[in-house]
Design a protein around this nucleic acid. Sequence first.
DNA 1: TAATTGTTGACTATTTTACTTGGTTACGTA
DNA 2: TACGTAACCAAGTAAAATAGTCAACAATTA
Lengths: 162, 162
Amino acid sequence: MRLTTKGRYAVTAMLDLALHSRTNPVTLTDIAARQTISLSYLEQLFARLRRADMVKGVRGPGGGYTLSSDANNINIADIIAAVDEPIDATKCGGEANCQNEKACLTHDLWMGLSAQIRQYLKSITLGDLIAKQLAQETAIVKSEEIVNIVELHKTNELHSIL
Amino acid sequence: MRLTTKGRYAVTAMLDLALHSRTNPVTLTDIAARQTISLSYLEQLFARLRRADMVKGVRGPGGGYTLSSDANNINIADIIAAVDEPIDATKCGGEANCQNEKACLTHDLWMGLSAQIRQYLKSITLGDLIAKQLAQETAIVKSEEIVNIVELHKTNELHSIL
DNA sequence: TAATTGTTGACTATTTTACTTGGTTACGTA
DNA sequence: TACGTAACCAAGTAAAATAGTCAACAATTA
């Protein structure tokens, strides 16, 4: 999991799409204008999002893009993963052929950390962000997910990281 | 908070330093060799770490670098923050002068997310990683910190994100 | 004094990011 | 059927970040 501005562009565009494609498809031209992102750059991002089957393209007049599934089923982690290159698996890419244990230690640290952050971003959906947008007030905290994360903290995940 | 390979280099180097500077300073040449990182690149990273007062340089023969404080007081978030450029605060950099609310929504999302991840990385210290290295077995889970994170999840933080 | 190591600055190469240009293809509508 | 619209696609480019090189200088120890 890598966190850069590229991923933020994608999340912003997807949120814009989720907010405006309730009835009709939304054109990239519209999104580009609203979010001040270059149209062609958006095209490249959406090519990846389409290959990841997160959006559907509709050609011709009245066309544009729609979400492939419900906003509540699209999480932030998947959006970022779709547009970001996978982070290079360091020198000892899982082959365990590194001479010194320390390199593998930080490798494990980073992989575990990524998994942790990924899990967190996976718990937030576009639907959550829309709810915030529509309600514009204190949001409903999704207690179950948080509890799950905590349990994982206490049992599995942290064991392999720390 | 930005997560790239640069930050990982820094964390790896700092962990190597923490593991080897128990008695004497450690030269960057040694770290470069062990972790297969270019010496001059390490020099640049350590220049920033020194300015952030996280390491101390000792010149001359027998010199090298040592940690400025105890490994238990150096957390991962600070290391990454020291070497990474601060992420550009988007177009509407806190000035709240953006025309459309959506841009600000994702801006808030990203800032909150960064704070969340930062808090998580702040709860892990070099000492924790050393303990793992030395014990090489199931680590002690720092329950208090985790509980704190959870409480923040439930009360303050998520409100502003979701 | 000589060797060692940090410190600094300037410079280069590679990769990623962000954007541009110029097409083609599919589709709806006049 | 012709036309406009918008997705789709393939290059290439500019700027930035990443990663690394080279060379000089400063402090310290033996």
